[in-house]
Design a protein around this nucleic acid. Structure first.
Length: 275
DNA sequence: AGAGCTCCTCGGGCGC
DNA sequence: TGCGCCCGAGGAGCTC
């Protein structure tokens, strides 16, 4: 599933491919992807607009056009595929942007969980899905021990839940939270109020290290996820616990276990991450 | 505040 | 062995 490193890679790859292109038409096969406005209105608004730049904040992508910004979220399995010239649409191609040079950008999403919202250009940061987001795990001076202690105050929820909460830290998902807690020697089931300051410090440092390294490697390839076109992430070679059930812990050799924490598959070393 | 439901498809595991 | 069924996976928005 695309998390911040994957979305960052998508942003980088897409920027090279489609910035400067002008939208000639939009084909929508499944309009559940388009939120807040009618899909026909989405289509007609976009015709004639040029893609000026692409940004991302955590897992959210911003496609800045002439008059609007598209806020795009890939959720579980969303991907963008770019074709130099038009190809027949496949089963899970839901939204197709056709450019006036004959090339096209297809949004493909097996589970149809992804979303696109159209806002006036430059107003994306005021959208309610964005304003509530917390600091990024990388190069964000707002992410401090004091900040996490304040956010954690007396909470009974698990540390896993806490780190998945995008209003606490923005951009971490299931894979990286497991990796960060492993690196920080913290059991995912620990209640947030039991986490000590030195442990929050480890979490901050490991988040920065792991996310930076993943971005450098282009993200993780898990199951059906590929970044864009033929570019795949290489970070899967770096995973220590996620998807490693039964394999020896790289630190102590104890077999990695998988359990459920608030409904999420959670991988951990029972010895290094004792409760 | 926080737990639980919702969206959706595919594939793994199971039974026959 | 082969087929078909059921259920689990999961980010974020929503309700209660």
């Amino acid at each position: 599933m695309p998390e911040m490193p994957e979305v960052t890679t998508v942003r980088r790859v897409l920027s090279e491919l489609v910035v400067g292109k002008t939208i000639e038409d939009v084909v929508i096969h499944y309009d559940g992807i388009i939120k807040e406005i009618d899909s026909e209105q989405f289509r007609t608004e976009l015709i004639g607009q040029q893609i000026e730049s692409i940004e991302n904040y955590g897992k959210f992508l911003f496609l800045h056009l002439t008059n609007n910004t598209i806020i795009s979220h890939l959720r579980m399995e969303g991907k963008y595929n770019y074709n130099q010239s038009a190809l027949a649409d496949t089963k899970h191609d839901h939204v197709i942007f056709k450019f006036n040079d004959g090339s096209e950008l297809k949004y493909n999403d097996t589970r149809k969980f992804g979303t696109m919202v159209l806002v006036p250009k430059g107003e994306h940061l005021q959208h309610r899905s964005i304003t509530k987001l917390g600091p990024l795990p990388v190069d964000d001076p707002r992410l401090t021990v004091d900040y996490l202690v304040l956010k954690a105050n007396n909470k009974t929820k698990t540390i896993k839940d806490f780190l998945l909460d995008q209003t606490v830290i923005c951009g971490l998902g299931n894979i990286y939270v497991d990796e960060i807690l492993f690196a920080s020697l913290i059991n995912p089931k620990r209640s947030v109020f039991t986490i000590q300051e030195y442990e929050f410090e480890r979490i901050i440092n490991n988040s920065e290290l792991i996310i930076k390294e993943a971005i450098k490697n282009g993200g993780t390839t898990i199951k059906s996820f590929t970044v864009s076109g033929n570019v795949s992430g290489k970070f899967q070679h770096e995973l220590n616990v996620y998807g490693q059930k039964g394999r020896p812990c790289p630190r102590c050799g104890t077999p990695i276990e998988k359990m459920k924490v608030s409904g999420r598959g959670t991988h951990y070393c029972p010895k290094c991450q004792k409760l």
